[in-house]
Design a protein around this nucleic acid. Sequence first.
DNA 1: ATTAGTAAATAAAACCTTTTAGCGCAATTT
DNA 2: AAATTGCGCTAAAAGGTTTTATTTACTAAT
Lengths: 336, 336
Amino acid sequence: MKKRILISDIAKALGISVTTVSFILNDKAKEKRISEALTKRVLDYVKKVGYKPNELAKSLRTGKTKILGLIIEDISNPFFGNIARLIESKVYEQGYRIIYCSTNNDVDKARELIQMFYDRQVDGFIITPSDGLEDTVKQLQQSNIPVVLFDRYFPGLETDYVGADNFQGAFDATNHLCQQGYKRIGFVSLYSDQTQMKERSDGYLKAMDNNKQQSFIQKVQMDASDEEAMDSLKDFICENRLDAVLFSTNYLAISGLKASKKYNFVMPAMIAFDDHTVFKLLEPSITVVSQPIKEIAENLINILLLRLQGKIKATRKMVLPCELKIRESTKAKVTL
Amino acid sequence: MKKRILISDIAKALGISVTTVSFILNDKAKEKRISEALTKRVLDYVKKVGYKPNELAKSLRTGKTKILGLIIEDISNPFFGNIARLIESKVYEQGYRIIYCSTNNDVDKARELIQMFYDRQVDGFIITPSDGLEDTVKQLQQSNIPVVLFDRYFPGLETDYVGADNFQGAFDATNHLCQQGYKRIGFVSLYSDQTQMKERSDGYLKAMDNNKQQSFIQKVQMDASDEEAMDSLKDFICENRLDAVLFSTNYLAISGLKASKKYNFVMPAMIAFDDHTVFKLLEPSITVVSQPIKEIAENLINILLLRLQGKIKATRKMVLPCELKIRESTKAKVTL
DNA sequence: ATTAGTAAATAAAACCTTTTAGCGCAATTT
DNA sequence: AAATTGCGCTAAAAGGTTTTATTTACTAAT
């Protein structure tokens, strides 16, 4: 186990100063008018001995860590897991690393995590904010550290944001159900003030209004157990004799499907928000409102990188279209 | 945006030296015989002004970053995603953070990632090693940096390791299929030398031998597209007129299920390695060999933490039992 | 009266970079 | 002749800790 080689070792070996080596290594040779001959000599030597600067010392001096903080709702949910994977590989190419944590929608944990990441001097944040995190995000902004929100945002706060067009997605899905001839269409949501939920709910309501239909809405507690969710969904669907349901998240839809299996009732026509392996495979396969995961990840990173480079001033809000993937669960209703 | 408060600010404010403050903050007050009165005075002041040491400077001086590197096959696969989530919340309690990357089984990417994490001086590694990563892991060991492997290991290398009892899991699963009366039982694996695959294959073969049955084995290319996998699985199952299949990973099983849907053939009795939401919900639900995810995560962290504290010398290999979760896909065969 | 020992605190080195400010010299301008 | 500019490079400061070696001011023992 050899000792790590330092920039001073290089300077000594070549009989020049540390400063010169540093300038050359940081692509400032031209700017600092270092002769080409010396530049080449240094570069060659550095390559030969395989010198790598100490990132910690570098970070301490520059204040930049090249680490981004990813604060996500739940890494084990495929929607977030997939976004995380895409984000990770994108920033990787730019020399950034990701340090992440799941909040499970617990605002206190989120606050603590952000504080810790801040203390570690991450260069920027990507956050799916839980209810009540507005103040913390505001503080970050005031500390001049780049933050991009995704999936949801705070209406009262000017922030960068990337998300799907939840209103239109829910609107289209609901319209599709109406067109297929369903008459008693329910909507399942969460007790939460998060914007994406509000938008989906509004999309559903608007479509129901347009079609002059009565609306049925059931909310589930965010911290409800699987059992509790299943129970309330069973009651909602059966007691209202719904012939179609729009679920506002993939895991709510999965709870619904589990309920139908457990309590042995026939799941009516249904649509889920966010695609999932399970939806493609079930018999019948499930129609979904699919968020453009790849585009969301790309835009998140683009905006964050631009901001890190100080290339944008005004906040950017990107709303990307969803896609309604029509499958077997919403075939036209046969009226008896 | 106020300036960050430093340890020297505290020393100055209290009219004492930086050293004393540092000793007190690092719980060395007793050891260094700092008077209790002063200790309390410093602690109170620190709390009052909310001083937090600069982690970078600390890391630079101590060589410890309190960051662990997690090199995982694919964060968007629920098996790995769940382990990642558990690991993350466990180490969080100990003041460590996780920095992660997915390798997608690409050994070059894995090597590069490990190098980068090493350059960033992570304190330890948790790795699901891809084929060919043996040298790199060996180098890490020689650099005296703690490494714990999981899911698979290298037979020729003494390393800490945590994994499931793949042999027994596959053996039990195969036996179960035999007992249910199936006669043409296939096994689907990957072209890979990874130990977990070999062990599962051995378990299958041993059980087939014990039951005096002919074995059918199909391997899929690791980098095969979904389409290619589906095609070869269809051929394997149909042409051999299999009446049961054991899939060595959850995603192979999912490809099989997709194939049966796409090509419209009846999936025979089946068992998958690693549970997945989809397996519980399908009709019929799928029997699985379930790995003890929670125990794996806990043991990974325990071993890594012990090693970081220098409390263990000998390498530890933990093999944890799998659970065969019997569902509808393997009900007793009805002979015509 | 000197030495030894101890309690309580500290100055300075070490960790390894980046960056500011400037040096010595030759060539050019005033 | 004196002042300015350009060139190629560098000394030293700065970034904020931890830790080693040392100091100071006592008390107790020889």
